[in-house]
Simulated assay, not measured.
Amino acid sequence: MEEKKSHESVRAVERALEILLAFRPGDDELSAAELLTRVDLSRPTLYRLLNTLEQQGFLVSSGEPQRFRLGSAVAHLAHVWITGQSVAELAQPMLRKLWEATAETVALFVPDGVYRLCVAEIQSAQPLSFRRGVGYREKLVLGASGRSILSQMRLSAEELGRYISDSKPDVARLLTELETIRTQGFATSRHELIEGAVAVAAPFFNGADQVAGSICIFGPSVRVTDERVVLFAELLRHEAGNLSRALGQQARQVLDKAGSRS
């Protein structure tokens, strides 16, 4: 029974995506009748899914008979994707320098709600290495790359609640850790998301001096010793500063942030 419900849920998602993908360039609005010519669905199923998509902001309807157009949730996803792509392109020189200097996997993450999204990665050429892959998504509260972003958001204990995935979190301890990360300008994690992996990450900022993401280096603990963590942190802060300037952050702001970490 559970397996059947799971299959039905997956099929419902597939059908909903088919409806969204039925919109083509130039389609400002489509009626239900027009959508029925593009998707293989019964009318009742179509209307049920249209109603769900509208409730979630993926579609907006108007008129009589109803006509549907793409909603703000689609625009949000498009913005996240476009922003990620442009940042990934700008960050390539910085990622390449870090990869050449460390010989470890280097990745770029951008925030996506309570999550972070990997938009660029250069994998280590060494036989023993770790990778996440472009498109990898994880909660901001987990891992060095996530907490380095979260540390710059200056959240209250109440606001932090929506980012926490643990059922019984120690909020006070997490707030203290985020303050330490914010002060030193980088975050570390050991054996947290991948057994045997060590990650070091630093945040970067946009022209409005808002955190725009993080750059992360990660590799096996047998190579990423405490001494190398210190080296990686310095390299990351330097290249994160370069990326921040490329995104429009003023030199004075970059110096102020660097000074607050010393």
Rank of each mutant, 00 (worst) to 15 (best):
V224L: 14
R48Y: 13
I181C: 04
V39M: 13
L174R: 02
P44G: 14
T183S: 11
R11V: 12
R24F: 04
T52G: 05
L77D: 13
V134R: 08
E3P: 00
F205S: 02
Q184I: 06
L59T: 07
W81S: 14
V171H: 00
R182P: 01
Q152C: 11
D28H: 12
D256K: 12
A197F: 04
A101H: 03
Q56G: 10
V119H: 00
S165M: 09
G196C: 09
E54R: 11
G146H: 01
V134D: 03
L178A: 07
V171Y: 05
V200P: 00
Q55R: 15
D256G: 00
D226I: 03
L178M: 09
L236N: 03
A202K: 07
L140A: 06
F232H: 12
P111Q: 06
A187S: 15
S167M: 04
F68M: 10
E34A: 15
S151Y: 01
H76W: 11
L193C: 06
R131K: 12
D112E: 10
G259Q: 08
I181R: 01
L193S: 12
R38A: 13
P44R: 14
P44E: 15
R190S: 13
Q210Y: 06
H238P: 00
L235W: 08
V200L: 08
S148Q: 04
S165R: 05
K5C: 09
Q55A: 15
S62D: 12
L178R: 02
